[in-house]
Design a protein around this nucleic acid. Structure first.
Length: 504
RNA sequence: GGGCGUGUAGCUCAAUGGUAGAGCAGUGGCCUUUUAAGCCAUUGGUUCAGGGUUCGAGCCCCUGCACGCUCACCA
């Protein structure tokens, strides 16, 4: 390791501690309470009028030090909160005080034993009788503490540089408590989804991440290779085709929470690997799935935020069921004046778009044009939760057709805050129809679409054994977390978002 | 991949083409109830990297890298 000057000074302190017979990285600590527990104990004793001292040993990082000659104040922080330490030469002696002054730095992990009390200004604190180093920090935490300059410019920003925050998430977490809170919320959201499905008889399963054929979504995959088997494999882009095989196997309600990998561009809402929840439910259709979706998201909001009305990007959003239901046709008609039902063929739709001054992408299918209208005009207007439903067949190869409408399938997407949150449909369970869809996608591939659905023969074999009618659902956990924590980029809800290699 | 922007001390930020600075942190002092303590003194720079223009470049030009925003892409 190469050290900066600040770091060299701390390395010298390590040597000094060792020379004095003090191990700066001891194997064990004697911590008995978190800082929050210590405070609660003391408050309880106070409330009970108890005169017995509350004795604790707490541990944490040194986050502030105010050394005032014969007495020191300091704050330590652990995962539960902060606690002020009060050190006085009367109890500790001059040698210990001097060691603390000279060898202890902000960022060090220490433990302190003593009894709880209130300072004259009323802050619950620990009157320290003994302390020891638990782990010496060499690199100073990137914490800023700006001060009043000429009666103004109070800037107490901590680490804010996004690159440093993402590359050194450990440092970001260490100095920015609100970042820690985001990831606690993320965990609560996942637990809420899991509990919600478990309570409704769903079975959590795990399916292959390394897949010989990828499918279930339109995305380019990452390719890898098994050496001994001499087998090319793909990292999964969705769980869909494996989960639906399980319905053939009489596991009626299944779900998986896990990582998908898509070899595509990164953006504020895309990361090459992201977390997805998918569930499949036998004997359900997409309307049933809509009901479950709105209940599940509202439940997650309650668990994470304590309520179903949340704020996202300044918008007050009401997640309580029922959510607005809007057919894709009506939504596009309202926002563009184009009736997609009046244009069952791509040529007519493209003409209609041109007459509105739009520039339909040459060679795009009808479904892709409709998807473009949705993304450009309708999606930004969908702030309050909305189920858009009934989608073009040609962009939905795994969804079941609507009875009596060969161009449309029973599919919906849930939109909140102008962002696609989830995607679901009545699943196609007709093996002959499914084979036909794969073949149609194959034609698209031959005309240059990289994101084709490759034919999955085994999936067709599974379906040909008989697949119960079912509804299926997929939702990005990252986007759900963004929504519930009011974060506006996916990087803020990923502990270690994907970045380019660090420069030399 | 395209466009725009940013890159200066550990952190947050200044600096007309003319001596690289501030606050906090650090270091040395003073201080026995502080509160993002206070006071005195002080250290710390390959200004992202490499070229170029100029008497002189943190600043202007070129190339590269990283990050941000945005467009494209995106079942």
């Amino acid at each position: 390791m190469e050290f900066s000057e600040l770091e060299r000074i701390r390395v010298e302190k390590i040597a000094r501690l060792r020379a004095a017979g003090v191990e700066p990285y001891p194997t064990r600590s004697e911590v008995t309470h978190t800082t929050a527990e210590a405070v609660r104990l003391f408050e309880a004793a106070e409330a009970a009028g108890s005169a017995d001292p509350v004795e604790v040993t707490v541990g944490g990082r040194l986050r502030s030090m105010r050394l005032m000659g014969k007495i020191f104040f300091a704050h330590i922080e652990d995962g539960s909160g902060r606690l002020q330490l009060f050190l006085r030469v009367n109890e500790l002696g001059e040698a210990a005080m001097e060691s603390f002054r000279a060898d202890y730095d902000l960022g060090d992990f220490i433990q302190a034993a003593g009894s709880m009390f209130r300072t004259r200004s009323g802050e619950i604190s620990l009157h320290v009788r003994s302390f020891k180093m638990l782990a010496k920090a060499i690199t100073p935490l990137p914490a800023a503490k700006d001060e009043l300059v000429d009666g103004q410019v109070v800037r107490h920003a901590a680490l804010t540089d996004p690159e440093t925050r993402y590359r050194q998430r450990y440092a970001d977490l260490a100095v920015n408590p609100e970042v820690r809170e985001v990831f606690r919320s993320r965990a609560r959201a996942i637990k809420a989804v899991r509990d919600f499905l478990d309570e409704r008889g769903f079975l959590e399963v795990e399916t292959p991440i390394l897949q010989p054929i990828y499918g279930g979504a339109a995305a380019r995959p990452f390719i890898t290779h098994h050496n001994q088997l001499k087998q090319d494999l793909y990292l999964r882009i969705s769980f869909e085709l494996y989960l639906k095989r399980l319905l053939v196997g009489m596991l009626d309600r299944v779900y998986e929470i896990g990582r998908d990998f898509r070899n595509e561009g990164v953006s504020f809402k895309h990361n090459p690997e992201f977390t997805q929840i998918e569930f499949y439910m036998a004997y359900a259709d997409y309307f049933k799935v809509m009901e479950l979706t709105e209940q599940m998201v509202a439940y997650a909001a309650e668990q994470v935020c304590g309520k179903t009305t949340i704020t996202y990007d300044g918008h007050e959003i009401h997640l309580a069921p029922p959510w607005r239901r809007l057919t894709l046709r009506d939504g596009i008609l309202e926002t563009t004046g184009i009736d997609i039902d009046a244009h069952p063929e791509v040529e007519g739709l493209a003409d209609a778009m041109q007459s509105k001054g739009m520039h339909p992408k040459p060679g795009a299918s009808r479904g892709k044009l409709i998807d473009g209208l949705l993304g450009d005009f309708l999606e930004p207007t969908l702030i309050q939760p909305t189920f858009l439903y009934n989608y073009p067949r040609d962009i939905s190869p795994l969804a079941k057709s609507m009875p009596g409408d060969s161009h449309t399938v029973e599919r919906f997407e849930g939109y909140v805050a102008g962002m696609e949150l989830c995607n679901a449909f009545t699943e196609l369970n007709d093996p002959l129809d499914q084979e036909q869809r794969f073949l149609e996608m194959g034609r698209d591939y031959e005309t240059g679409d990289e994101e084709r659905h490759p034919m999955d023969e085994d999936y067709l074999r599974a379906m040909s054994y008989g697949m119960p009618p079912c509804g299926g659902f997929g939702m990005g956990i990252d986007r759900l977390t963004m929504l519930l924590t009011d974060r506006h980029t996916i990087r803020e809800v990923l502990l270690f978002p994907h970045l380019r290699n660090e420069g030399e």
